[in-house]
């Protein structure tokens, strides 16, 4: 007899769970609102002030990263989606019911991961392509625009969606480790906001060496067409970020597998 529980059935089960709670729906709406809303706001302001922008600023202006800047705010919303997907199971106690149906814990974690990655990839790409298109439409006629036919532009827009996907998994992995929603979201926000501020107090030479390792800086590099000074290139940033997330997920799964539920 074939086993009834498999990765496929776990994915189906987790997909039902993922879409059947309001926190996911709210998280997705906020993600789109932050990406598109802030993207629109920044591009409109850029257009209105374009006549007072200095020639030097005009030379380094990146219409792509400017239109994608909302992604760097939406990263907090996707973090909440990712962490609640697992921490809500612990806070409500439903993890016990879940594990009695799916006793192999790595299978459960992997199933959740697949659901999260697939849905956040779609949402992330929809958000980044939409905000890019809206931004270029707002720029057109006054500010230089970029086109998706340019491969580095396309790369930056696709990477913006990937960045959101990866950060939701980062928060999810923290959730596997920490179990509590508040703790998980605090640590997540600290990684993105507090550590960069602490880094500002380091000697400048250290700062330049260190900042490129921060996830938020990698995000900055990933959504830009030109390379950002002192940062890794876009592709290197993606690879390093995938490495971080994979390592954290692996640690999360090991801890999840060993601890009492």
């Amino acid at each position: 007899m074939s086993r009834d529980v498999s990765l496929g059935s776990v994915v189906r089960s987790e997909w039902i769970k993922f879409r059947s709670v309001r926190s996911t729906v709210v998280g997705v709406v906020v993600t789109l609102f932050l990406t598109l809303g802030l993207g629109a706001l920044v591009t409109v302001l850029t257009r209105l002030h374009w006549n007072v922008v200095t020639p030097l600023q005009r030379a380094t202006f990146d219409p792509v990263s400017t239109s994608l800047v909302g992604v760097l705010f939406a990263q907090f919303a996707v973090g909440v989606i990712g962490s609640l997907f697992v921490t809500s199971e612990f806070s409500t106690g439903s993890i016990r019911t879940t594990l009695s149906a799916v006793p192999k814990r790595y299978e459960l974690a992997l199933g959740k991961l697949i659901v999260l990655v697939a849905s956040m990839f779609v949402i992330g790409e929809v958000a980044s392509f939409a905000t890019f298109s809206i931004g270029q439409a707002i720029f057109s006629g006054v500010v230089p625009t970029a086109s998706l036919s340019n491969s580095s532009v396309l790369r930056a827009v696709v990477f913006a969606g990937l960045y959101l996907t990866l950060l939701s998994v980062l928060a999810f992995s923290l959730g596997l480790l920490l179990r509590q929603s508040a703790a998980c979201i605090s640590v997540y926000v600290s990684i993105l906001l507090i550590i960069p501020i602490i880094a500002l107090f380091l000697p400048t030479s250290w700062q330049d060496d260190m900042r490129r390792f921060l996830p938020s800086e990698m995000g900055h590099a990933m959504i830009s067409t030109a390379s950002v000074p002192n940062n890794f290139g876009a592709t290197t940033s993606l690879v390093v970020l995938v490495g971080y997330v994979a390592a954290l997920f692996a640690v999360g799964v090991v801890v999840f597998t060993r601890r009492d539920a």
């Binding site: 776990v10 089960s13 769970k17």
Partner: peptide
């Protein structure tokens, strides 16, 4: 110990789906 925001039917469906 059930997610309070989920309907009874969705809760059971998620369980059912995991075991086909």
């Amino acid at each position: 110990a059930i997610h309070p925001g989920r309907s009874a039917r969705n809760h059971l469906r998620s369980l059912a789906a995991s075991n086909r």
